[in-house]
Nucleic acid binder design. Sequence first.
DNA 1: TGATTCTAGGGTAGCCGTAG
DNA 2: CTACGGCTACCCTAGAATCA
Length: 320
Amino acid sequence: MRGSRSSSKGTNLKVGSHGCPSFFKIYLGESSFSCERTLVPRAFVEAHEEKLFQSSWALKTEDGGLRRVKIERHGTDSFFCQRDWEGFARDRNLRFGDIIVFFLVGISEFEVMIFSQTTSCRIVSPPANKTAKADHDAFTSSSSDDDDDDEKIIKAPREGRRSKRKSSCNYAHASGSGSSKRSKLASGKGIQVKTESTESEMEEGFQMKRFSNVNLTAKFPYFEIVVKKSHKESIFVPMGFARETGIIHEKVIKMMSSENRSREKVEIHRVNNNRVLLVKGWGAFRSANNIQVGDKCSFTLLNPNSHGTMRLLVKKLPKC
DNA sequence: TGATTCTAGGGTAGCCGTAG
DNA sequence: CTACGGCTACCCTAGAATCA
């Protein structure tokens, strides 16, 4: 599914730390609505025309992989050939929001660095014959506490003493770091701790995770939740997300689906001064998109800094 | 450094008001 | 009376702070 349709937006010119000219693109995957091709920044092409072939470029990744991509020219614009770009995305296991940095290191030769949007860390792709399990692990790496330096969870730094607790952005889930310690502690206090999913939940094919997964560092901030029974007519927005993105001050948000292009205006209710609920419109949107209990969904804010109505892209994720 | 305590915030059951 | 939606109180989690 991933990489079945690809495009990207948000390019900027940069200069690599090692002096090579560079640019980056953000992978929007199949969730992009438009059928636009994948544009190479015109300014970059113009600035380095003498080092760039007209027909194809070589992309080298950090794991030693090499892929040639055809370049299509239309007027003054250059595009990655859609099929090659999709192939590259598939090979590299790109995810929505991943950042791809291209360093021009030779004649039509680029070194490519990929940063995971989820972990804000560099991704070095596993060998090409990786298993589906490995795919899944990579996909869910943001919620595991493995020792891979490239996929470490970035923890928020400790702030001043007794500082107010921030939201659990980019933190590990309950099954992650510190759970064993907490289990001991909790059992000592007679509190039942649920650090692992129950059998019934496993049978249903998903793990009930109490907390949502929030990423505010991405260009397009997002949060992910597993839809529960109680989300039939309303759904909570994590407070950290609501505050940082300004949703907390909004009355209405436009919700759009990555799958069938349906759109719905959803009312935002402020509860108790410390809760933010998506209410009217959510139910209809959920039905229209066949979002059911147990489905894992990501909610990506497409226009975090605009003054108009905020737009939230909803995407069903594979169940874990 | 590990154990313990504190506490902000997420999740949800259930109450209450309103409409049909 | 019933269904529905809004709201609140409470429980629980887990990061941060503190202490031995």
